[in-house]
Design a protein around this nucleic acid. Structure first.
Lengths: 207, 207, 207, 207
DNA sequence: TATGAATGAGTCTTCATTCAT
DNA sequence: CATGAATGAAGACTCATTCAT
């Protein structure tokens, strides 16, 4: 109901996310998706029509998931509840709690953002239905912080964007560095966010 | 030969960057590359052996280019020459000058970062030969700034990384937003960097 | 039941004639037939077992229809009632009356003659149960005409065959010419038959 | 040159005519065509692009062949050289000579006329480039015969058409009857034509 | 060295057929 | 009996790779 997907479709979508993530859209084969989903190859096409249809199925699910308010709001929560508090441990725990609800969608999001390069309809949907709404959502808490004198009065959208870029950059880097740098992921993420927060803070002399 | 590429190979590499950028590695065909390079399909294989060999040729060129000091140093220059100066116009002009020398390699870099997901040898090389060296390069000026009391004493590598993430995020966003947001690219980039700089500055009360 | 078909089967056969006529046996799909018949795909197989079974169902119906004397006799009637009468209008009206009762079976017959090429059992049945009986039927009136001195004493079977060829050729041509030649179909058919009649007439000097 | 086909293409076209004739366009497989042509399946597609492209290649060859005057004229020759001569042996020999030059193209023509039902571009080409030109060609000798008082003054096009229908009907019948009727093919064809000739003759009392 | 026709393994996709409901 | 989701074998088509010229 909420996702509009029945059991078979869910299995296929899940398998497709895995395979597309590992091999990319073009590098993946429908037969591997079917196999990983535990269905016949024909079943995949009965439900999604074409290989691209599977990608659009994933896209649709991503969009649907982002319309659930609890997910969309978690990012906004990060900003709202943080002022000039100095306890970094508190901040980290807070962010991790919020991000954990997005965590499960990360492979899907990463895949879609990458494929957006090559598929204009994916690009369009990711922009209109996910990126823009998230920025729109962040705008309000940022503006409130600006009014409260906590944040600098830069363009709110760009501030939101630079937060997302920081998070995104962190995730991409973690993948590329793999386990070569056995660093403390928690501390890294905390520092990334700390730099951003200090970057957007109003004159900290007030503290 | 600094690049080790003859004329035919250069034409093929150039064509391949274009085609791989537009369609991705798997989505591209050797025949289109050959056609765009103005050579026969057999010629491509005579020079690069396999399709993957072309990708590795591109990788090699990227690595070679990043060993030219003038390019690698341009990012470091951004950090070095900036302290608590207040003229933002100066900053922007500086950055644009430095970035413009990287600009031409962007399609190649984007392509390689994308394919790094799927080809471990590309991932390895991009990490060892490009990402890590750039971070290593940025580490020194950052440390100097820290010693000078200009930058906060966070982990220097993570500070470098968050700068790169900001730049990368900006570029990816520009592509996704396309011409929908007819914003002033120069101002946007300036704000992105401004947030980062303020984020890494030592307590500004001192200023 | 003269046809031995129940309501569901009739709907399927009718739909199949339409679809096979438009796309040919191999080009048609059982799913389209089911859809046009307004039943589920499984229902088609419950009644006819295989796709070829549907074709054989059509064949059976054609054979059954041709055993109804009123249809089979209509061609014979054309010959019987025509001697050296001079009124061509009368002839045309006569033929049209007779042909109209076959008209409705034309798509089915065309389809079966086409598929006879590729399916020996269809070819066999069409020959044994339709073509041969029709020729057998025509043989008698032709022979009577020969005895009466109206028709030339050629091989009666071949004379019958050449009449059928003329009719068949006319129909095939009309389809190929489509509406390009906005000719008077009635007059055309009349001339086709007129040529045949004159071709088989005994020496017309007698008239 | 004259056909515009190189050796490989000729082999494929020949094989395709055989396979399409036996199984019909939809029933045939490109792999069987390739196998019969003695080339790889990919080679077929390198030359004709799609399966339908093969059919159009056959069509093109048929059209090209019919533009060679020696073939097109042979049918016209049948009419021209026949008046009221009474020797049927002479007639048969004449027709057989003329037809033998078309004989080799019969499978191709039959195939194309059949597939014309399902492929509008084939139908169009067969009509415009083959059927119509043949009728146009036959019109003149028929009209000359009419002027000379040898043929009845019916519509010349319809007279031509009824000749073609007679020939076509004969060929189709032979295939359906197969070897069941071990009749004298030569005599049969002669009678078919004899009926047509008598049917179009001017008042035979003159003879 | 450059070419491009030929190759055939591998892909997406279709569809007749089955069977649990 | 009717249904229609699931199946998987088979087909059209692609494309990296080879090799004779």
């Amino acid at each position: 109901m909420s996702s509009g997907l029945n059991c078979t479709q869910k299995k296929i979508i899940e398998a497709a996310i895995k395979v597309f993530s590992e091999k990319g859209f073009e590098g993946a084969t429908t037969s591997e998706i079917a196999q990983k989903a535990g269905v016949a190859e024909g079943t995949v096409f009965r439900h999604f029509g074409t290989k691209k249809g599977i990608l659009q199925g994933i896209l649709l699910q991503a969009v649907n998931n982002f319309q659930k308010p609890e997910i969309a709001l978690s990012l906004a929560g990060i900003i709202e509840r943080k002022g000039c508090e100095s306890d970094p441990q508190l901040l980290i725990r807070l962010i991790k709690d919020q991000l954990s609800s997005i965590q499960q969608y990360l492979p899907m999001l990463k895949l879609l953002f990458y494929e957006a390069q090559f598929h204009s309809e994916v690009r369009e949907a990711m922009y209109q239905k996910i990126a823009r709404p998230v920025i729109d959502l962040l705008r309000e808490p940022i503006k409130q912080k600006q009014v409260a004198g906590d944040f600098r009065r830069l363009d709110a959208d760009l501030m939101a964007l630079s937060l997302l870029a920081a998070l995104w950059g962190y995730l991409v880097w973690k993948e590329m560095a793999e386990d070569r740098e056995n660093a403390d992921g928690e501390r890294e993420l905390a520092q990334f966010l700390d730099i951003w927060l200090k970057g957007v803070e109003a004159n900290s002399c007030r503290c």
